[in-house]
C-alpha cells in the first residue's frame, strides 16, 4: 500500500470551527472475471486506539429477498469485527446500495451525520471492500483532525480498491 501526504495551501485565514469537512475520492476498479458482483464497501474512521468513531458509508445489497444481502456483511471482516456486527442494518444516512466500477466522490461535513464531531487527534480513514466470488481488501489513510489547512493524503489498494484519496480542509 502506497501512502502519500501532500500539503496544499495552508489556511491563512481563521475559519469558523464548524466548517471542517472531508472529501473521499474512491475508485472501484474494473475486474476481468467471468462472474462479477459489485463489491460490498465499508468506510469508517478509527481513532488512535483503533476504536470506530464514525461509520461513513456502507454499500451492500439491501434489496434482496428476505434481506439475504445482509448475509455477506461479515465478509467485510475488519469492519464487521470493529463495529458492523453491533449495528442494526440498514443504518439511515450510512448504508446504501452497491456500486459498480468507477470513481466516487463522497463529501462529509463536520457536525452533520454521519461524520459528526471528532475530538482533536490522529485518525485513520478505513476503506474495506469485499466482492462475492472475489477478494477482500482494506486500505487505510491516516489523517489529523481538525485539519490545519487543506491536506490531501492517499493510499491505493492492489485489486479490490483503486486509489483512496482523502482531502481534509477547514
Amino acid at each position: 500500500m502506497r501512502i502519500s501526504v501532500v500539503f496544499a495551501a495552508s489556511g491563512l485565514i481563521a475559519t469558523p470551527a464548524m466548517a471542517n469537512d472531508m472529501v473521499v475520492n474512491l475508485e472501484i476498479p474494473r475486474q476481468n472475471v467471468a462472474e462479477y458482483h459489485k463489491p460490498y464497501v465499508a468506510m469508517w474512521i478509527e481513532d488512535s486506539s483503533g476504536k470506530t468513531v464514525a461509520n461513513l458509508d456502507v454499500w451492500y445489497d439491501g434489496d434482496m429477498r428476505k434481506d439475504e444481502g445482509k448475509k455477506w456483511l461479515p465478509d467485510l471482516r475488519t469492519w464487521w469485527r470493529r463495529s458492523g456486527r453491533s449495528l442494526k442494518m440498514p443504518v439511515s444516512g450510512v448504508t446504501g446500495p452497491t456500486q459498480g466500477p468507477g470513481k466516487y466522490d463522497l463529501k462529509f461535513a463536520e457536525g452533520s451525520r454521519p461524520l459528526g464531531k471528532l475530538p482533536t487527534g490522529s485518525y485513520k480513514l478505513q476503506v474495506e471492500a469485499a466482492r462475492e466470488v472475489g477478494g477482500r481488501e482494506l486500505v487505510s489513510v491516516p489523517f489529523q483532525w481538525p485539519p490545519k489547512g487543506t491536506k490531501v493524503a492517499s493510499a491505493s489498494g492492489s485489486k479490490e480498491l483503486g486509489t483512496v484519496r482523502l482531502t481534509t480542509k477547514p
Binding site: 434481506d67 439475504e68 456483511l73 461479515p74 464487521w80 458492523g84
Partner: peptide, 8 residues
C-alpha cells in the same frame, strides 16, 4: 462461525 442477518 461468524454470521449476519435476522436468522441463519
Amino acid at each position: 462461525t461468524v454470521l449476519a442477518g435476522d436468522s441463519e
